[in-house]
């Protein structure tokens, strides 16, 4: 080991489904410069130590999105994650395949579930044949229109967001951050004529399962910020349809709730979202909580200056116009 290198221990996930009974972690120790990318280290391991290690990669320059994997539990591109900080923080580099997609071998996953969600949002421009674009105008957009989706085209479909998402992990009904960010891209494209149809279709198909935990935005190597685009979709879906889903009813219910006292009225909100039937279904749990926390039935105080809040609502949340 020279002064410029560190001794780095890699614990690499190894698994051949159908052949191995269980996954195992194989330890490789290499002397490397701290700025060495994890991908470079893995390729050295494969070239010099163990040719059977399977991994997916291509460009090595954070452009192709092929080498996403879990590095010390974080979903990252291996080509742009340096070993130095990982060794310093964790004492080793644990390398595992991405989550939420079945392992094919070692670090290689089957990305079919991820791409299926992408296909489902119909990721192509939908044009209305009855409303042809004027000649020569078909691709013209104002700078302001382009500004609305400047982030989403940066997506390299690496699936780091899909791997990091707790909603994907817990519920197959959730399309995942990438598919929804791509959907947003078509919803705000002024050339697309299926905006409403897209929003109506996504509402009952997982839009409201987003936890707004922002783990996708944190994992994204290209700063696409999927969680923020999902928020935009939610607001646009409400504008188109109102509260048709439990999620949209809850968001609207919450907004209306604050008009009362300026503070959350918990019981009123539950009633607005779930209705009396839904509340009855949760009666047992409600009583359990009420016995320790009787305040759940209490009406909150009204804040001072409630008239100010009401005026803000009047200015920025006017009721929908008649007939709209």
């Amino acid at each position: 080991m020279t002064a410029d290198t560190i001794s780095a221990a890699f614990d690499v996930y190894r698994f051949r489904p159908g052949k191995d009974t269980a996954p195992r972690y194989q330890r490789y120790t290499l002397d490397l410069a701290p700025h060495t990318p994890v991908l470079t280290a893995l390729l050295r391991i494969r070239a010099e130590v163990d040719p059977t290690l399977a991994l997916r990669y291509s460009c090595r320059s954070a452009i192709c999105g092929s080498c996403a994997m879990q590095i010390n539990s974080k979903s990252r591109l291996a080509c742009e994650t340096h070993i130095g900080p990982e060794v310093e923080r964790h004492g080793r580099v644990v390398v595992e395949p991405m989550r939420n997609q079945p392992v094919l071998r070692d670090l290689v996953v089957n990305q079919r579930p991820f791409w299926n969600e992408y296909d489902k949002i119909e990721p192509h421009l939908k044009l209305d044949p009855r409303r042809p674009m004027p000649e020569g105008k078909a691709t013209s957009m104002s700078p302001a229109q382009v500004e609305r989706f400047k982030e989403t085209p940066r997506c390299i479909a690496c699936a780091a967001c899909y791997s990091a998402c707790p909603a994907v992990e817990a519920d197959p009904a959730f399309p995942g951050p990438m598919a929804l960010a791509k959907l947003y891209r078509f919803v705000v494209d002024p050339r697309d004529t299926a905006t409403e149809e897209r929003l109506v279709r996504i509402q009952p198909n997982g839009l409201w399962l987003c936890l707004r935990c922002h783990l996708c935005t944190e994992a994204c190597p290209k700063d696409v910020r999927p969680s923020e685009r999902i928020r935009d979709l939610k607001e646009m879906a409400i504008a188109v349809q109102g509260g048709t889903e439990l999620g949209s009813r809850h968001a609207i219910g919450f907004k209306e709730n604050l008009k009362g006292q300026g503070l959350l009225n918990e019981m009123k909100l539950v009633r607005a979202t779930s209705g009396f039937t839904g509340m009855a279904g949760e009666l047992g749990q409600g009583i359990r909580i009420w016995r320790k926390k009787p305040e759940i039935l209490r009406r909150p105080r009204t804040i001072e200056g409630m008239d100010e809040v009401e005026k803000i609502y009047e200015a920025l949340d006017p009721p929908p116009k008649e007939g709209s």
């Binding site: 707004r212 928020r231 939610k234 607001e235 409400i238 949209s248 809850h250 968001a251 609207i252 219910g253 919450f254 907004k255 604050l258 300026g262 503070l263 959350l264 804040i303 809040v309 920025l316 949340d317």
Partner: peptide, 13 residues
């Protein structure tokens, strides 16, 4: 007043 808890943000940013 209440901060909106993320839900008001979804309905009207």
């Amino acid at each position: 007043s209440c901060c909106g808890s993320g839900f008001v943000d979804e309905a009207n940013e």
